[in-house]
Design a protein around this nucleic acid. Structure first.
Lengths: 204, 204
DNA sequence: CATGCCGTGATACACATGTATCATGCGAAT
DNA sequence: ATTCGCATGATACATGTGTATCACGGCATG
């Protein structure tokens, strides 16, 4: 039987309020009361749907992960739409540059992830499955694309795919951090990434 | 006249207690009382030497920066001691690999910096001068070393020094984050870095 | 109609936190 | 020797926090 109100909708509404606060003011400002106010509901409601704060944090993090994944799939799809059908280079470029905080959406996602980062460091065991699974998968995916590019002759076959993928991903992460820290603009980071991708693939 | 007690000593003692807590439990656990307890002094003393908490945080951050810089200079010096006198490649390798969280000391520094990172994101203006100056200087320094290596023929002269330096630094940052997040061991990160440095300089 | 349960509001509670205040001791300068 | 100022201790205060409790309304089912 359908409940009187849509629970999932409520949960989403509250969790996204949490993410909004984490983005704009950091996670330490995301108190239960602040989340309730941001979501336009009472404190009791937040308690009702997510019994504890940890539950709320975890649920919101899961949603954030889903958002990032959706965004990546969208960018990968868009990479092969107008021209050639999804060359490895296009896919790698899409994945990496969609992580970089250039547009408002990616800025939001990156900032919010950064807000969670500190939390993970002080509470390593709680978020074990969420934190490590995603990056490793991404790294493997990139390595596969690189290997494909090597077989089609686009990349020097002497390069190690795993190491190259890991290096690229780490670089994008670091570039993202520098953008968030205000040291560099998002466009500048994108230029640096493009430069290195140009160097990796034989284009000149 | 010399004060009854050495103020600088006390300040250092308290600030390092703050850094110790930030390293092990994160900055959000570094309350004034916790810092006082860790330093073995009364809460009043912490208030006395650093009137406000913000003052304490800033002072501790400055000390952390000094520690990192000292460590880097030491590693740069050690890079040219046994063999050749400080080749650019040695310097670049030393600088980058000394940032990576491999030994306990660098783990401590990196973790503590990470703890401050979130703070900078939510309070961008307070730490404006401290946050942006250091990385930019480092990047320029690395670019200079790369340019020198190009002139001595060790690096492909067609590479852009600034972009290469920025990319390397970002990569090391990202690698450090992955190590702290438990995704990778410090040695693994070092291997990846070495691999990319081998690729940059012509060695094979 | 009665009953019981789900959704929701108001409020309480215990605690931690940053900061301020009051007080005291102790060395030094007049 | 007295007085003044620095260093330090004990404690108070206002506020924000996560969580728990009590109470009430409405809808479905008997």
């Amino acid at each position: 039987m359908a409940a009187q109100v849509d629970h999932e909708d409520r949960r989403r509404q509250i969790a996204e309020a949490l993410l909004r606060i984490a983005d704009t003011q950091g996670l330490q400002s995301a108190s239960m009361r602040a989340v309730a106010a941001e979501a336009g509901v009472s404190l009791r409601l937040v308690q009702y749907y997510f019994t504890t704060k940890e539950g709320l944090l975890l649920d919101a993090l899961a949603r954030l992960g889903a958002q990032l994944q959706a965004r990546m799939e969208q960018w990968i799809g868009a990479a092969g739409s107008p021209g050639s059908p999804s060359t490895p280079r296009g896919i790698v470029t899409a994945v990496l540059s969609c992580i970089l905080p250039t547009d408002p959406e990616s800025r939001r996602i990156t900032r919010t992830y950064a807000a969670y980062y500190t939390l993970v460091l002080s509470d390593p065991e709680v978020l074990a499955k969420h934190g490590t699974a995603q990056p490793d998968l991404l790294e493997g995916f990139l390595a596969k694309q690189i290997r494909a590019a090597q077989q089609s002759g686009a990349i020097d076959p002497r390069k190690d795919p795993e190491m190259t993928a890991a290096g690229l991903l780490a670089m994008v992460n670091g570039l993202g951090s520098s953008v968030l820290g205000g040291q560099r603009t998002g466009e500048a980071a994108l230029v640096i990434l493009a430069h290195h991708l140009d160097e990796l693939f034989g284009a000149r």
